[in-house]
Amino acid sequence: KELVLALYDYQEKSPREVTMKKGDILTLLNSTNKDWWKVEVNGRQGFVPAAYVKKL
């Protein structure tokens, strides 16, 4: 599985998104969309802005 690092805090704005804190390590589930990547964090799956994370 591929991991990404949260570069910034992000507060979810819809049920399809997830909240993350700067420094969190997230599991990358899908990065086919250039703007929104699907990740898993704390057992929850959802989208975060691709610009807010970096592949490890």
Rank of each mutant, 00 (worst) to 15 (best):
N33S: 11
L29H: 07
E40M: 08
L28E: 01
V39N: 00
R16D: 13
S14G: 13
N30R: 07
E40A: 09
K38F: 15
Y10P: 01
D24V: 05
D9Y: 04
K38C: 13
M20P: 00
K38E: 15
L3D: 04
E17D: 06
A50Y: 02
K21G: 05
M20T: 04
D24H: 05
S14V: 05
V4N: 01
Q45M: 10
T19S: 15
K1A: 14
D24K: 03
Q45G: 06
E17K: 04
D24W: 12
V18W: 05
K54Q: 15
A6D: 00
V39P: 00
Y52A: 14
V39M: 02
G46L: 05
D9S: 09
K13C: 11
A51F: 09
R16M: 15
G43D: 09
V18E: 01
W36S: 03
W36L: 03
V18T: 06
G46R: 02
V39L: 03
R44W: 04
S14N: 14
F47T: 04
D24I: 04
Y8N: 09
S31H: 11
E40P: 00
Q11W: 14
Q11T: 15
P15E: 14
K55Y: 12
V18H: 03
V53Q: 00
I25R: 05
T19H: 05
L7N: 03
A50P: 06
S14R: 10
K22Y: 05
E17S: 07
P49A: 02
T27M: 10
K55F: 11
Q11R: 11
K34P: 15
P15V: 09
L26R: 01
I25N: 03
R44C: 06
K38L: 15
S14T: 12
T32M: 12
D9W: 03
I25H: 06
F47S: 04
K55T: 09
K38V: 14
Y10L: 01
K21D: 04
V48I: 09
F47I: 07
A51T: 13
N30D: 15
T27N: 10
A50D: 02
G46Y: 04
S31V: 07
P15Q: 11
L3W: 13
D35G: 09
V41N: 15
R16I: 14
V18M: 10
D24N: 07
F47H: 06
I25D: 01
E2K: 09
V53I: 10
L29K: 04
I25F: 07
R16S: 13
L5F: 10
L3Q: 11
T19I: 03
T27G: 08
K55R: 14
K54R: 13
D9E: 05
K38Y: 15
Y8A: 13
N42G: 14
V41C: 10
Q11K: 12
A6Q: 01
K13M: 14
N42Q: 11
L26T: 01
L7C: 08
N33E: 13
Y8F: 13
D35E: 13
V48P: 00
A50F: 02
S31K: 08
L5P: 00
E2G: 12
D24R: 03
L29S: 03
A50V: 06
L5H: 05
A51L: 11
E40Y: 06
Q45C: 10
A6T: 04
K38P: 02
G43Q: 06
E40G: 06
V4C: 11
L26V: 07
L3S: 08
K34N: 13
E12D: 05
I25K: 05
S14F: 07
W36I: 04
R16V: 12
K34L: 10
G46I: 04
L7E: 05
M20Q: 02
P15A: 13
V4H: 03
P15T: 11
D35N: 13
E2S: 10
Y52D: 06
G43Y: 06
L29W: 07
K34T: 12
Y10W: 11
V39I: 08
K21Q: 11
N30M: 09
K13H: 10
L5V: 15
G43N: 09
F47Q: 04
L26P: 02
K13P: 05
M20D: 00
A51W: 10
A51M: 11
D35P: 03
L3T: 10
K21R: 13
L3V: 11
Y52S: 14
Y8G: 06
A51K: 13
Q45H: 09
K55D: 06
S31R: 07
P49W: 03
D9H: 06
L29M: 08
W36F: 07
L5M: 15
V4Y: 11
W36P: 00
D24F: 05
K54Y: 10
A50S: 14
S31E: 14
E40V: 07
Y52H: 09
A51E: 12
Y10S: 01
G23W: 06
K34F: 09
K1N: 12
N42M: 10
K54G: 10
F47N: 04
L3A: 07
